[in-house]
């Protein structure tokens, strides 16, 4: 019997939870705020779905209801991607070691 592709996705999901668990425990507590802003930025990879939604359908009717939701989602995710990565970068820039 063939294995449902869903099972593969579920395996990826569960393994990633474990990876996330170990990776996040190794994050130093002083970087917990950048951790939150960077997880914010990467979870905006949901923009992939937004792009698909925005471009769905025929090219004559660009602004059907479902496309509009896609475009709105693109704006939201883009704010997050740029905002998230840049603010993380700005924070990380500030962490300096003692000058010897």
């Amino acid at each position: 019997m063939e294995i449902d592709p869903f099972i593969f996705r579920l395996s990826i999901f569960i393994l990633s939870i474990f990876v996330g668990y170990y990776v996040v425990w190794s994050v130093t507590p002083s970087l917990h705020t950048p951790l939150m802003s960077v997880t914010n930025a990467i979870s905006s990879v949901i923009i992939v779905g937004a792009i698909i939604a925005a471009l769905a359908g025929s090219s004559e009717k660009i602004f059907e209801v479902s496309n509009i939701f896609g475009f709105l989602a693109i704006i939201l995710a883009a704010v997050n991607i740029f905002g998230g990565f840049l603010v993380t970068q700005r924070m990380l820039q500030m962490y300096k070691k003692k000058k010897k």
């Binding site: 592709p5 996705r9 990633s16 996040v24 997880t39 914010n40 990879v45 779905g49 698909i52």
Partner: peptide
């Protein structure tokens, strides 16, 4: 899962557990 997209699944799991 809906989009069958592994980047999103991996990221979701990472962020969720984080």
């Amino acid at each position: 899962f809906t989009l069958e997209n592994s980047a999103l699944i991996i990221t979701g799991a990472l962020v969720g557990s984080s």
